[in-house]
Amino acid sequence: MSKRYSYKFKMRVVEEYFEGKLGYRTLANKYNISTESLVRQWVNNYKDCGKNSLKSREGKTKYPLEFKLNVLHYKQETGASYRETAKKFGLNNPSLIANWRRAYLEGGANQLNNPIGRPSDMHKKPKLSKKSQRMNLSEKEELELLRQEVTYLKIENLYLKKLKELGLKDHRDPNRPNSL
């Protein structure tokens, strides 16, 4: 799982970058940040979208299909880069647009509506407890009786089919017609 950095920490790193004394790599090493590209991303987000772009979001932002299509259309028509397009639409993650484009090319507009990632557990059927999974004795007896009845009915069905095939009547019921 990736490390989460606080807003204050990100601001301190970005401000130190703008002082002009240290570069991306040096700042990453100084503050023990995993990659210099993360520092670069913070600086670019700050330049493009301001301070608020450094704040962590609680959950995923869900964008409507129409918005995604507008973003993709703008990028296609203008030939703008992912970063320029993201800046235009106030998105702080240009790779999001690349993901939308890939999804659109793979499956059209319908694919853009499909969530990417692991599905939530919300729609799964609840698991039964072990107690409710076990049958009590009377249920087991009833199941065995039903199985026996099914077997008997199968045999009776075969018997009646054979009688019909031979042109004979069922001797158990004199009023019963010969056809099944």
Results as ranks from 00 to 15, higher is better:
22 L>S: 07
23 G>F: 07
24 Y>R: 04
24 Y>N: 12
24 Y>E: 03
25 R>E: 11
25 R>M: 09
26 T>V: 12
26 T>I: 06
29 N>R: 09
30 K>Q: 15
30 K>G: 14
30 K>N: 12
31 Y>I: 13
32 N>Y: 10
33 I>L: 12
34 S>C: 05
35 T>D: 10
37 S>T: 15
40 R>W: 15
43 V>G: 13
44 N>L: 14
46 Y>E: 09
47 K>T: 03
48 D>L: 08
49 C>M: 08
50 G>C: 05
51 K>M: 08
51 K>H: 11
53 S>H: 02
55 K>R: 10
58 E>V: 08
58 E>H: 10
59 G>L: 07
59 G>R: 14
62 K>A: 07
62 K>N: 10
64 P>M: 04
65 L>F: 03
69 L>Q: 13
71 V>I: 12
72 L>I: 07
76 Q>F: 15
83 R>W: 09
84 E>N: 08
85 T>V: 03
86 A>P: 03
86 A>C: 05
87 K>L: 07
88 K>Q: 13
89 F>R: 01
89 F>E: 00
89 F>N: 00
91 L>E: 02
92 N>R: 11
93 N>A: 14
96 L>T: 13
97 I>Y: 05
98 A>Y: 14
98 A>P: 09
100 W>N: 04
102 R>Q: 07
104 Y>W: 11
104 Y>K: 02
105 L>Y: 08
106 E>C: 04
106 E>M: 12
109 A>G: 05
111 Q>K: 15
111 Q>D: 15
111 Q>A: 15
112 L>S: 14
112 L>K: 09
112 L>D: 15
112 L>Y: 15
114 N>E: 11
118 R>K: 09
119 P>C: 05
120 S>H: 04
122 M>Y: 14
123 H>R: 06
124 K>D: 10
126 P>W: 01
126 P>K: 01
127 K>R: 05
130 K>E: 02
130 K>T: 00
132 S>L: 00
133 Q>S: 00
134 R>N: 03
134 R>C: 03
135 M>W: 00
135 M>C: 00
136 N>G: 04
138 S>Q: 13
141 E>Q: 10
141 E>S: 06
143 L>P: 00
146 L>A: 04
146 L>Q: 08
